[in-house]
Nucleic acid binder design. Structure first.
Lengths: 266, 266
DNA sequence: CGCGCCATTGACAGGTGTCAAGAAACGTGG
DNA sequence: CCACGTTTCTTGACACCTGTCAATGGCGCG
């Protein structure tokens, strides 16, 4: 029994909302609604389902031995999740927004369907690739050393994932604690950093979780780009990489050490 | 031409070494040998190939705007990589061991093959799932705050990935700088931490990159587990999670704040 | 209303990045 | 084989950032 015991609704599936057409895969789905904090699956549960979130939000997290929590991923509408190579769940997933809608696909049936329908197989494959892309980009975020970088990158990520170009305002579904555990820093530092960004007039805070991006340029400046791939100037990395460590303006010396292509063409 | 211009060898593919049977996929492959530092693909290259590393090692990295480097993944024998959802490469991959052998599969042909052969599709899908699993586990590593935790987790990861249970000695293919950029910390700290671990007799250093794990228990203690899923005691997370923040011995208060299932069953 | 949870702010110490210097390892060429 | 330059690795000193502890206010909810 891996689904929350209190899971109330089980809608007959016809016309699942969402931006991606899953074709026959939808007929395997059952949809459930989750309240805040309700568990979608637990650590060590058997990996028997794939999931897709239709509305709301969820967090995928783990607890370390000393009782600290780390959030591996925020799951937003349209995302597929639960692609685990292992037999058992390595993480647990809980809803963080009220009335979060999640579709569930039995692995085995879905696999069988994928075996018979290349179209399905392709959809699943691409969903998995998207997960990889998201995780890798997130990796870079976590790799940032300063709190300002992390939080700025996080805000940009949320803005992008919510396609909030129009109004420039994001309504964060997660608490400061969640953000802290997501960025691997203390809550207090998250709070302080947001205050700092507000003081700089880079962002404005309406309700506590309502962030308006006043100066996206400044935010990207701090976040150091790489958050969004398709931006204007892809930045010529080869130049930076191949030159023997250029001054690079006010480079904080930082984490980069070896030039990218040493011993090139040896 | 995204492959290194100096790529010397192109073996006729028959009987690619490696631990996984790729079936007909192998007929699409071309294998090349790379020297240290040679580029497999670059940032912004079109994503036209999938890859599989047969021997040696490689790093997948990115450069931030201020010239720092972050290594997203170390790629070891058996790993498939290059699964990008985007049209262009978000990262660059370079060999870090001499004579690294890498097989290359054209995406389009491979996709076509996967469409016609469910077996192939399944193999690719599972390889992608494995990437996800590895990335997620790595996420947790990066989420660690202390240098000791990070380095310990890293050493355990390398030991596991090299299946080095027998001799307890790992020969790291990467430099300290690579490790630093992988763990998002300064080289000096990596060095200091290794020295510290040696002082504790947790590890021993033969050659500089030759690490012998003297006290795996201590290493796991510091790394806080979660690095390897299938260890003896999976640690009952539910207990920790559902109780209202137990004292948890000498809990450093840390990153964990909210109990896992608040408002459970609402 | 009062109890949790969430969010913010302050004070402080410890850890880690930074700068600097030197030792060790490696490859190359004499 | 040795000399030499380059790269890698280590160690030290110091300042700053961020985690920790503590206290307060706001907010939702029973």
């Amino acid at each position: 029994m891996e689904i929350s015991p209190s899971m109330p609704i089980r809608e007959p599936v016809e016309g699942i909302p969402g931006d991606r057409a899953l074709g026959d895969l939808e007929r395997l789905a059952s949809v459930a609604r989750y309240g805040i904090g309700e568990t979608v699956y637990r650590f060590n549960d058997p990996s028997e389902y794939w999931f897709r979130i239709l509305s709301g939000a969820a967090r995928k997290s783990t607890l370390t031995g000393d009782g600290r929590r780390h959030i591996v991923d925020f799951i937003l509408p349209g995302d597929m999740f639960g692609f685990d190579a292992a037999e058992c769940r390595q993480f647990c997933v809980e809803a963080i927004a009220p009335g979060t809608l999640i579709a569930r696909y039995p692995c085995r049936s879905a696999e069988r369907l994928a075996d018979s329908d290349p179209q399905i197989a392709r959809i699943v494959r691409e969903a998995a690739f998207e997960s990889i892309t998201r995780l890798q980009r997130r990796m870079v975020t976590l790799g940032r050393t300063s709190a300002l970088e992390k939080v700025s990158t996080f805000l940009l990520e949320m803005a992008d994932r919510y396609h909030t170009a129009a109004t420039h305002t994001v309504l964060l579904p997660m608490s400061r604690y969640d953000i802290a555990d997501y960025l691997a820093m203390a809550v207090e530092t998250v709070s302080r950093t947001l205050t700092e960004l507000r003081a700089r007039h880079t962002i404005a805070l309406g309700a506590v979780r309502q962030v308006r991006i006043c100066n996206r340029g400044a935010l990207e400046e701090v976040a150091d780009r790489l958050t969004e791939p398709g931006s204007s100037a892809p930045r010529d990395l080869t130049r930076i990489a191949s030159s023997p460590m250029p001054p690079a303006a006010k480079s904080p010396r930082g984490i980069h050490h070896q030039r990218c292509n040493d011993r090139w063409g040896r």
